Simulated assay, not measured.
Amino acid sequence: MKDNSVLKVEVVVAKPIDVVWKAWTTPTDVKLWNIPFPDWHCPKAEIDLRAEGFFSFRMEKIDGSEGFDHSGFYDKVIDNQLIEYTGLDKRKSIIEFIENQNTTTISEIFEPEEMTPIDLQSDFCQSVLKNFKKHVESKT
């Protein structure tokens, strides 16, 4: 991955890393937070969390007028620390989980797609991270 051809989004979650990791890697949780906008949902989430394991998430508008699958294979997984994967479209992503006492920073670096404007991709991903934060922080 070349630094000048990647996007980075980040969020700080006010929960310990084990809670954050579980919510990020559990399909039932993913379906609740992997939503970029209020009129979207994530009806499908499959996760085989291991190197060479397959993942697939379906994101779509609630009315069914627009949607896409985000799928690929995990390249590297270190529990509570790191997920690296390659999407079926060959784009790479790196997600780091950094523990800061009782908070966790999630940093996601990814190769953008060519057809969608960069700022739209960044806003889309940042919105998903904000939903993740809200989801995890609302859990007791």
Rank of each mutant, 00 (worst) to 15 (best):
V11Q: 06
Q126G: 12
I47T: 11
D69V: 12
I98R: 04
N4H: 09
R91C: 08
G87F: 12
N100S: 09
D18F: 04
V136W: 03
L82P: 03
Q81L: 07
L7K: 05
M115I: 08
R91I: 06
S122Y: 15
D29L: 01
E99N: 10
P112F: 09
K31Y: 04
E66N: 12
V128W: 00
I98Y: 00
E60F: 02
H41W: 15
P27F: 12
K61E: 11
E66L: 14
L7A: 09
Q121D: 07
D29R: 01
K130M: 14
I98F: 02
N4V: 10
D123H: 13
D89Q: 05
E96R: 13
V19K: 12
K15L: 06
F54M: 05
S127N: 11
T26F: 04
T26N: 11
K8L: 13
M59Y: 04
D123A: 15
T104I: 01
I109E: 08
D123W: 04
D39S: 13
K139Y: 06
K130D: 15
I62A: 15
K134A: 14
V13H: 01
D29E: 11
F97P: 00
K134Q: 14
Q121K: 10
H41D: 15
T103I: 05
K90G: 02
T86W: 02
K134N: 14
M59V: 14
K134C: 09
P16Q: 08
V77G: 06
E137Q: 10
K61C: 09
Q121I: 10
K44Y: 13
R58N: 14
I106D: 00
L32D: 01
Y85Q: 10
D48S: 12
D48H: 09
R50W: 01
K61M: 14
R58G: 02
T86Y: 01
K2H: 06
P16K: 09
N34P: 01
F124K: 03
S65R: 08
I78M: 08
F73M: 06
E52P: 00
P43N: 11
K76R: 10
I83N: 01
W24T: 01
T116C: 05
S93A: 13
K90I: 02
W40E: 06
Q121E: 13
E111Q: 15
F54I: 13
T103V: 05
E108H: 07
F57V: 15
D3H: 10
F54Q: 09
F55K: 03
H135S: 10
V19D: 03
N4P: 01
E10V: 09
F55H: 07
G87C: 05
G64V: 12
L49A: 07
A23C: 15
F57I: 15
I106S: 03
